[in-house]
Design a protein around this nucleic acid. Structure first.
Lengths: 316, 316
DNA sequence: TTGTAAGCGTTATCAA
DNA sequence: TTGATAACGCTTACAA
């Protein structure tokens, strides 16, 4: 293993000069700096992050906390995780996965990335003594990253109108959470702007719940209706039950999902959906958290990422 | 932060005695040991794993390497990852995710858990200088954990026979890899034992490839046929195209999948499938790797985990 | 601007 | 069996 001392010896300087070239290059004269830099290059030196961690009282580990049940966990979390991992690896950070809220503060870490948080979890967050960033919008002032939910549903709704569907129905998730309110707002605002009356159903985020809903209300739905769904999972159920009822998708009925990571491709026909940039959000979460750690906890703000409309066979 | 010295002071012994109580308790007299232990308890002492890592020249990090494309990555990897995480966290280990084979040795780690390996990757593994365990069987002597693929398909085939399907067809994945050979062997052996002639199709692991296959050959399939599929993804496509053809599932045609983590529930009707204990295998992978690291690389062997038959609506 | 010395929390070595 | 000391690789504080 090549150490600081090896580089120092090769460059004929002290360890501190090498350390400074790494951490505070501006404090070193250009000549020495380039001398040290070439020594580092020829020796292929990489700082030992464990030694750095020890002296800086860091662990180089952050926890990825999933407060949702794994079983209900959307497959798209995989992408989020890979994004987070990419952002962390850049700074030689590793992570641990936590599913039990009790275990958040167990063991060692420098901070937390928290997903699946509900309003009821907020009080617990106030108790945390290490920096954290939430994945998912909130109105309590916690730093977060999320898709621009309102914009996403607005895009979906406008697209449905542009495809000349006459009736636009929103099928949301029956949770009193900010992301759901934002999605509904995107729908409601767009309908009102077009002098249409909003019609919202709210169900659990399961395809079978969506099937049940369509089954129960199918007679009420006229041709030229488009269903804007709060998740691909719901859209999948809607599409399936419409087929079951013998309804023509996309000609008579349109279906638009939300997420666009995995389930949209499983559906038949494939779903028109609002794709979230999950991987990129993961990377951003990591970057923000590491920055927050480096700045000893200073606020990083709230970031909304613009989603993308993917046009597929479930709309005409 | 409570340190070794704090405990030593509280217990009126030297730091080394405390260290020994942690690492080599048999070298300490019972009296001193209990003295130290109660001091650790009252102070709520936890060893600083970073300091341990530094002095032991360890990183407390392992890499989780995914050689498959993320896009084709099955959602069940999420479960594997949570299992791995659980196994690692027990020993205060964290992990990094690696998708680029070039990056396996970049940065710091104590070892690797490798998934999605193909035979063509084996030569690269010979070059690795740190311990690793594969997720997936291989015949090159590398330590691995996998489902007992042969047994799984045997269970599926026997179940199909017991449900009185007359024709049993296997739809495999067109890869020349050990797991596929094992699955086919489970099928072939069971058919031969029952004096039946095996019939195998091999396709890419995609639902649409399965749909194409069924569409093309549907006329050849008689009633009372059960399709044993090498993955739920394939089974999903088979089921979907059978529906498209107007065939009755499960009465006239049976479909059995393999994996049993997520897609089996998305299917309609839900799939009878061979469920792999993915989470448990992840935990085992971690345990084995940490043991291998502790034993400076000694072989851990090959472990086959018994899968479970889940009976659902896609068989009668 | 550069170097020296001390220390982060732990464990191995060797002496008592 | 127990303890003093040095060492792991790095950075901060201070001195030159």
């Amino acid at each position: 293993m090549v150490t600081l001392s090896d580089v120092a010896r090769a460059a004929n300087v002290s360890k501190m000069t090498v350390s400074r070239v790494i951490n505070h290059p501006e404090q070193v004269t250009p000549e020495l700096r380039s001398l040290v830099e070439s020594a580092m290059a020829t020796l292929n030196y990489h700082p030992n992050s464990i030694a750095q961690a020890l002296v800086n009282n860091r662990t180089n580990v952050v926890k990825f906390v999933t407060l949702e049940d794994i079983d209900t966990t959307e497959p798209y979390y995989m992408n989020l995780l890979f994004g987070v991992a990419k952002g962390l690896t850049k700074k030689q950070y590793a992570f641990q996965l936590v599913t039990d809220p009790e275990q958040i503060e167990a063991g060692r870490s420098d901070g937390y990335i928290i997903t699946g948080a509900r309003s009821s979890d907020y009080d617990m967050f106030d108790q945390l003594d290490k920096p954290f960033i939430l994945f998912g919008e909130n109105h309590r002032g916690f730093d977060f990253v999320d898709t621009d939910n309102q914009l996403g549903v607005k895009m979906a709704t406008e697209y449905a109108l542009s495809r000349l569907y006459k009736n636009i129905i929103f099928i949301g998730i029956d949770l009193k959470e900010p992301f759901e309110y934002s999605r509904e707002a995107g729908y409601i605002n767009t309908l009102q702007k077009n002098q249409l009356i909003p019609k919202i159903f709210r169900i659990g985020n399961h395809s079978h719940a969506a099937q049940d809903l369509i089954k129960e209300h199918f007679k009420e739905f006229k041709k030229d209706t488009c269903f804007i769904c709060a998740s691909d999972r719901i859209a999948l159920g809607v599409e399936r039950q419409l087929a079951e009822e013998g309804a023509k998708v996309p000609d008579d009925f349109g279906v638009i999902g939300f997420d666009g990571v995995f389930l949209d491709q499983v559906a038949n026909p494939k779903l028109t959906t609002i794709r979230q940039s999950i991987f990129e959000m993961g990377e951003l979460l990591a970057t923000m958290l590491l920055q927050k750690i480096a700045q000893s906890g200073s606020p990083q703000g709230e970031v909304l990422i613009k989603p993308t409309l993917i046009r597929r066979g479930s709309t005409r």
